[in-house]
Design a protein around this nucleic acid. Structure first.
Lengths: 199, 199, 199, 199
DNA sequence: CCATAAGCGAGACGGTACGTCCAGTCTTCCC
DNA sequence: GGGAAGACTGGACGTACCGTCTCGCTTATGG
């Protein structure tokens, strides 16, 4: 673990991008979202709370959505990475549970919901959310699923996207509507959709 | 000098609420949402487009969310009412398809998505969306499901709320993420979750 | 002095103008002016405080200015009528002192100041203030002055209007600027302007 | 490629206050007052007519009264400064005539009347009008008068404030009531009040 | 080795929408 | 027909952010 900085503190960055300003913005955005909701997440509030000039934010991020996206991508990778090891059924199930936990209990999960919501209000947000987050993850999920099928661990009747939507959708819907995810929902869906009766 | 006409047209409302103003607001809100998105849906724009004073809107609706809610409730009842007749499996399946159609193809379906989205940004919105729309409909859906179970038409493994979330969730999730609902998704979910193999 | 009303109280007026509503409006206007200033004197506030419908006010008064004018005319006549008896110097001086007292210490005097002020903001107000208050009083003041001159009680160098303006103006100006009327001002002006040295 | 021009024109202000915006506001306020009266003098109208954002006005002026005060102070100094040279009777008389001219014929004089009027409607206005305009000018007028007395040019019976009120008041009163200032009024007052008969 | 170029905090600027208040008009229903 | 009640259009209020801009400063780099 390398030290933070040889000298005590670096007051100003000079010519290069100021990393501490970047982090301050990301953290301020995160904090404001959790504390005051998306409504309280204004560029001015971020700037104020991060001790940063508005222009510094506009220089590096096209919109507050991209700020949140940056934190979401980092956090998702840390909290529930798509497994790239053995494609066992248990790994798949664990991944799904990790997603459910992230989205229900992790404060960082609020960011995903907020972006999903904002995407409904703004087509541009929808596009970059898909491009930078949903699609890349879906690609890796699809790959994982394909390897699991090939290994004979699961055998869904539905196509890969459909089955992933069918597994993730109910969890997201529960969270969106503010109800708790019913106990056993994930497991039952998993069993019924990935290991169907041979009819 | 005879009166103009007894029931020709009522130019102004006087002491009572002006029904034509109410309708103008609802339609303007609907139109603006579809044409310019939630971002373009400001109280001022609604007033402008409905030919109505802002104060008239504030007099009757606490927020633009409640305006949308009013249109959503009316439209939902028209486009896909919860069936209260025979609780056959086919009726249930038809209702589900009606919901999918509403949310994917009906312009009025955008209102539900917008409100679901706004509910993520605003706890107050979440509450009234549940109270005035989600919960009442869910109650009737649960009742329908219960009657279908009693009639032996379906036999889900999951509890009533869980099974409804599992059926509706994937559809909503697909729409939220901007992907099309995969062909066969609804039917497969229906078959797998409501008429499971006896294991 | 006739009794207020033979029967206990008249709840509604019926076909004729409701005198109690008229008085309620006048008193409410007066009270509001004194308590909340001209800024707090809105038609809605008068209606609210008088327990009267807005329409009733608009039916009888073209503007709130006319309401104030009605009270001002009544009050001025009561508090410092233009003397029509003997045109002695002492009567004249007393009238001037009465005016000073009205405008500095009588709450009803605020009404005159408010109307004089409003007349600067609104030419219509200026016109009716002159027509209904300033000009009629000035006519009688001029007449009084003429009789006093004829009787040899006073002998101003200036014309009648000029001398009246010269006497009244300083008092009004002091009140308008919020300073107190200097002791001896009225008397000195009176002596210097009405009984000048024969040069 | 050489620079466009060192001191050609500054299109935008940047971090510092924009002087052109300040002047645009002052002139717009002045123009609106003269053309549409105090009633037409709204912050929105000023902003519109000055081509300036409302916020820019609110940033620098607490109210429209202070805008007018700024123009009044500047204009008064230009049009009829309190003379600080020789304290001759003629200088004093000239100053008084300058005041009369300002208040009767100069469009900028309307500003003083409007503020004097507004001060009657609003105690806050009264206070700042005194603090920023009336009192400072009165101080210098008093000083001028004192020097004139000391030089034996004039010898009023009344105290300094009283005599000034007695000179200025009639002029103001005439203007306030919409009548013209009677010919000879200023001179007669001047002679009678500043050079009284030795009785 | 110093000019220059970029990052940065600060904050003024033109806009747009907010939610509130009041003006003045109109209509209904009761007396 | 008078009057209470109150809905209606219209428009200004003062506030909050938006996204753009310029200023004056700091620092790293390259001619």
């Amino acid at each position: 673990m390398p030290a933070v900085s040889p000298q005590s503190r670096r007051p100003r960055s000079g010519n290069r991008r100021d990393e501490s300003a970047r982090l301050a913005v990301l953290h301020a955005a995160d904090d404001l979202l959790v504390e005051h909701g998306f409504g309280g997440l204004t560029i001015e509030a971020i700037a104020r709370s991060a001790g940063v000039a508005k222009q510094t934010i506009y220089r590096w991020w096209p919109s507050k959505v991209e700020i949140l996206l940056d934190t979401l991508i980092e956090d998702s990778e840390k909290r529930f990475p798509v497994p790239d090891g053995k494609p066992t059924a248990e790994n798949l199930r664990g991944y799904l549970r990790g997603f459910a936990r992230f989205v229900t209990r992790d404060p960082a999960g609020k960011v995903l919901l907020a972006l999903l919501a904002e995407a409904q209000h703004n087509p541009g947000t929808a596009e970059i959310l898909r491009e930078r987050y949903l699609d890349p993850r879906r690609d890796r999920e699809r790959a994982l699923l394909a390897r699991a099928i090939e290994a004979g661990e699961v055998s869904p009747k539905l196509g890969p996207d459909a089955v992933l939507d069918a597994l993730v959708g109910p969890i997201v819907y529960c969270v969106l509507t503010g109800s708790s995810v019913p106990r056993g929902l994930v497991d039952t869906l998993f069993d019924d959709l990935l290991r169907p009766r041979p009819d």
